[in-house]
Amino acid sequence: KTVEVNGVKYDFDNPEQAREMAERIAKSLGLQVRLEGDTFKIE
């Protein structure tokens, strides 16, 4: 899975870890996480 923030992509081998990281980043920035294919987009 991939986490994308402001056009910057971070790859994770563990999908659960990617989801947790995406949620943590989104919460700290006051944004939403949206799953698009294999990418968690933070917008």
Rank of each mutant, 00 (worst) to 15 (best):
K41G: 01
I42H: 01
F40P: 02
R34T: 11
L31E: 05
K41F: 14
E23N: 10
Q17Y: 08
Q17T: 12
Q32T: 14
E4H: 07
A26S: 06
D13E: 12
V8D: 05
Q17P: 02
A26H: 01
V3N: 00
A18S: 01
E43W: 10
A26Q: 01
I42Y: 02
L31S: 07
N14K: 08
G30R: 05
T39R: 04
K9H: 07
V5W: 15
E16G: 08
F12L: 05
P15D: 09
V8Y: 10
K9L: 10
E36S: 05
T2H: 14
L29I: 04
N14C: 12
Y10F: 12
E16H: 10
E36W: 06
F40N: 00
D38L: 05
K1H: 15
I25T: 06
N6E: 07
S28E: 15
L31A: 13
D11V: 15
A18E: 00
Q17R: 11
E4K: 06
A26T: 01
Q17L: 13
F12I: 05
R24W: 13
K1Q: 09
Q32V: 15
Y10R: 04
M21A: 13
T2W: 13
L29H: 06
R19I: 07
Q17G: 06
V3M: 03
S28H: 14
N14F: 08
N6G: 10
D13S: 11
K27P: 00
K9I: 10
V33A: 05
E20A: 11
F12V: 05
A18I: 03
G7W: 02
E4I: 14
V8L: 10
R19E: 06
K27I: 12
N6H: 11
G37W: 04
Q17A: 12
G7V: 02
S28I: 14
M21E: 12
L29Y: 06
I42G: 02
G30M: 04
E23K: 06
D38P: 04
E23G: 05
E43K: 07
D13R: 08
E4F: 11
K41A: 03
D38K: 05
G37E: 06
R34W: 09
D38N: 12
G30C: 12
M21H: 10
Q32G: 10
E16M: 10
N6D: 10
Y10Q: 05
I25C: 14
F12N: 00
A26R: 01
G37K: 06
L35Q: 09
K27S: 12
R34N: 07
P15G: 09
G30S: 04
V3W: 02
T2D: 03
G30D: 05
V33D: 01
I42E: 02
T39M: 09
R19D: 01
E36F: 06
E16I: 10
A22T: 00
Y10G: 00
N14D: 14
S28G: 08
F12P: 02
G7M: 03
E16Y: 08
D38E: 08
M21F: 15
G7P: 01
T39I: 14
K27V: 10
K27A: 14
D38S: 08
L35I: 13
K41I: 15
V33F: 12
E20Y: 09
Y10C: 14
N6L: 14
V8Q: 10
D13M: 09
P15R: 07
E36Q: 07
A26V: 02
E4M: 13
P15E: 14
A26Y: 02
R19Q: 08
S28A: 15
G37N: 09
K9Y: 09
D38T: 09
G30K: 05
I25N: 00
K27E: 13
G30Q: 06
Y10W: 09
E20T: 08
V8T: 10
D13P: 10
T39H: 06
I25E: 04
V33M: 08
L31N: 01
A18V: 02
A18T: 01
T2L: 07
T39E: 04
Q32C: 14
G30V: 02
L29Q: 06
S28K: 14
D38Y: 06
L29A: 05
K9T: 11
S28V: 13
Q32P: 11
V5I: 13
V3E: 01
L31T: 07
K41Y: 15
D11K: 15
Q17H: 12
F12R: 02
T39Q: 04
F40Y: 15
I25V: 10
D38C: 14
K41Q: 05
L29T: 05
K41T: 07
E16R: 08
T2G: 05
E43H: 09
R34L: 09
Y10D: 01
F40G: 01
M21I: 09
V33L: 11
D11A: 14
